[in-house]
Computed example of a mutant assay.
Amino acid sequence: MPFITNKTTQEHVDIHYKDYGNGQPVILIHGWPLSHQAWEGQISAIVAAGYRCIAYDRRGFGISSAPWDSFDYSTLASDLNTLITDLKLEKAVLVGFSMGGGEVIRYLTDFGTDKIDKIALIASIIPLVKKKEDNPEGVPEDGLNAIMDALQTDRVGFLKDFHKNFYNFDDNKGDRISTAQLDYDFTIASFASPRATLQTARAWANTDFRSELKNVTVPALIVHGDSDNIVPIETSGNQAAKGIKNNTYKVLKNAPHGLNVTHRKELNTILLDFLKQ
């Protein structure tokens, strides 16, 4: 199993990754609280289209190292930078799903665009999740606090219900998602580090990326579902599209947060068209 080791942080952290295909590198950064396995529906399509596809497990998730601390976005971006540096990648495309969009933007802020050709933000938290006076459509703080409390009192119980909302399962009566997929996601999420699950939740809930949108100077794709119950489109996709100059914005009708599964074909078509441009 391939790993890269980030030795720049206080603790040396081993990051597990999968590396398939040849051609221009496309790096997939998964959402919370899953692993690189969440990209199953995209990896094969990207490789078949002639690209090199690299998907990795965020620290604390999958089979990457699980340190006790250091889950802020600059540290997470340093893991990504180590991957890019160690694999000697050039003209890479960064694709961030949900909280993975934060690594994308923070990477551009901390390390620039010399090795980056394009970015894609899929159902991303960018630029801000939390409701504030100047972000009235965000998630109320008491709702975010309830998530943090649940992760500390009944983490697996919370995760069991979380994924139903992830896919709007009750609304679509399972037409686009199977109960087996819910079970699969729950297994991945429940085996993640409890500490990492909590600390990364605090990172995506509290980090404001609005001032960093100016650092996106490469072409950007933004894809969001208009029925996203986890990351409301008004506080994410709509704002990201306004704040990033050179972007292509695609809104998927009736798509939930987990649109990479429920709207796999639509997303793959959009993503591959963007890669070919």
Rank of each mutant, 00 (worst) to 15 (best):
S193K: 03
E133I: 12
N215C: 09
D171G: 00
N229Y: 06
T197V: 15
I125V: 15
A123H: 08
T113L: 00
N135P: 05
T109Y: 07
L159W: 05
S190L: 06
I116T: 10
N145G: 09
L121G: 02
Q199N: 12
T109G: 05
V139P: 09
E133G: 12
N135T: 07
F186A: 11
T197A: 09
I188E: 05
F191C: 09
P136V: 11
K160Q: 13
V223S: 02
M148E: 14
D134K: 13
A205Q: 15
S178D: 08
G225W: 06
I177Y: 08
I105K: 01
A192I: 04
K118P: 01
F111Y: 15
G96N: 07
S190D: 11
D175N: 12
S193W: 07
D134L: 13
L121N: 00
G102H: 03
K132Q: 14
K164N: 13
K131M: 14
G157P: 06
D170M: 10
R176W: 11
I119L: 00
D185N: 10
K214N: 14
Y107F: 10
M148C: 13
T200L: 14
T187M: 10
E141M: 10
P232M: 08
T187H: 11
A203M: 15
F209V: 05
D110Y: 03
L94T: 02
L94M: 05
E103P: 00
S178K: 09
L159Q: 10
F97H: 04
G174P: 09
I122L: 15
N215W: 00
T187A: 12
G112S: 01
R195P: 01
D170R: 08
A203G: 07
R176D: 11
V104P: 05
G100P: 04
L121M: 08
I188P: 02
Q199T: 11
G174K: 09
I125F: 07
V223D: 04
R176M: 11
H224G: 11
R202N: 13
G101Q: 05
D149V: 14
G101P: 04
V104D: 02
P194F: 08
M99N: 00
A150Y: 07
L213H: 06
S178P: 08
P232G: 10
L182V: 14
V218W: 01
D161E: 14
V156A: 14
R176S: 07
D175L: 10
G138Y: 01
A180S: 14
F111M: 04
L159D: 08
L108F: 03
I122A: 02
Q152Y: 05
K160N: 14
G225A: 10
R202V: 11
A196W: 04
M99R: 03
D171H: 09
N135E: 06
P127H: 02
N215R: 06
Y184R: 13
F209W: 10
R176V: 07
E212C: 04
